[in-house]
């Protein structure tokens, strides 16, 4: 191939692929809004709060960002709203082990940010993040779950609490909670957390008394 041929191949070939990228971009722009819920004024304001505090300087969102702190794509799905609001405004007051500093996020900003996180959690991301294989398989390995364990799973308690290594770090590790608390405390706490732990960020458990009894039994077995 002559130098001129190589040069023309470079120029026209690159232009060809760039035109394809532009065409695909036009189509993608058309489809993006259909793969996500409507953007309300609150969602838009929340996105600006996300930018203002440079959240991406530590977190990732849609998997892109700084890899220093958890990904925020599904946070609104996994954590109670009341917890999120308290955490955003003063992280260490809610979770003493948290690395996140108190940034001065106001109550209104926190509400908008949560609206934004609720929006992003509903974006159709082609199935990302995938459900963890081994956690999804837990309990289906031939061992029957107890009634309390089933309540624990159905309420999504493990989004915030750890039992035997599995679960979230937003709330305390409850692997041995049965040796620390009695039945009365646990039952009452599930009904009204802030009456037992001042300024608790945990939401009251919304389930029947029978289910809460079974959940309490399960907690008492954790020793």
């Amino acid at each position: 191939m002559s130098n001129k041929g190589a040069k023309n191949l470079f120029i026209y070939g690159s232009l060809f692929f760039f035109v394809i990228l532009v065409l695909l971009t036009i189509d993608t722009m058309d489809q993006i809004d259909r793969k996500a819920p409507e953007i309300t004024a609150s969602v838009d304001a929340g996105k600006m709060v996300w930018h203002k505090y440079d959240c991406i300087g530590c977190h990732t969102i849609l998997g892109n960002g700084s890899y220093f702190a958890p990904d925020m794509t599904k946070t609104a799905e996994n954590k109670p709203k009341g917890y999120l609001k308290k955490f955003l405004m003063d992280p260490k007051a809610v979770n003493p082990g948290a690395s996140m500093p108190k940034l001065g996020i106001t109550s209104e900003e926190a509400d908008n940010l949560i609206a934004f996180l609720e929006w992003i959690a509903k974006v159709d991301t082609n199935g990302w993040p995938p459900k963890p294989i081994l956690a999804a398989a837990a309990g289906s390995g031939g061992k029957e779950l107890s009634a309390g364990q089933r309540v624990y799973q159905s309420l999504g308690c493990s989004n915030c609490h750890i039992i035997n290594g599995i679960g979230g770090t937003s709330g305390p590790d409850i692997s041995r909670v049965g040796s620390k608390r009695d039945r009365e405390w646990l039952f009452g706490h599930f009904k009204k957390p802030e009456a037992y732990v001042p300024n608790s960020a945990m939401p009251a458990v919304s389930a029947s008394d029978a289910d809460i009894e079974q959940l309490t039994d399960y907690m008492l077995s954790l020793k």
Binding site: A6, L9, F10, G13, S14, F17, F18, I20, L21, D27, T28, Q31, I32, K35, A36, L62, G63, N64, V123, D124, T125, N126, G127, W128, P129
Partner: peptide, 22 residues
């Protein structure tokens, strides 16, 4: 540089797997 752009321009797509794109 031709091959860089022939592969790299549409290679942008590897960032469009999971962010709410088709």
């Amino acid at each position: 540089v031709g091959l860089v752009l022939f592969t790299g321009i549409l290679g942008t797509g590897h960032h469009y797997y999971w962010i709410g794109t088709p």
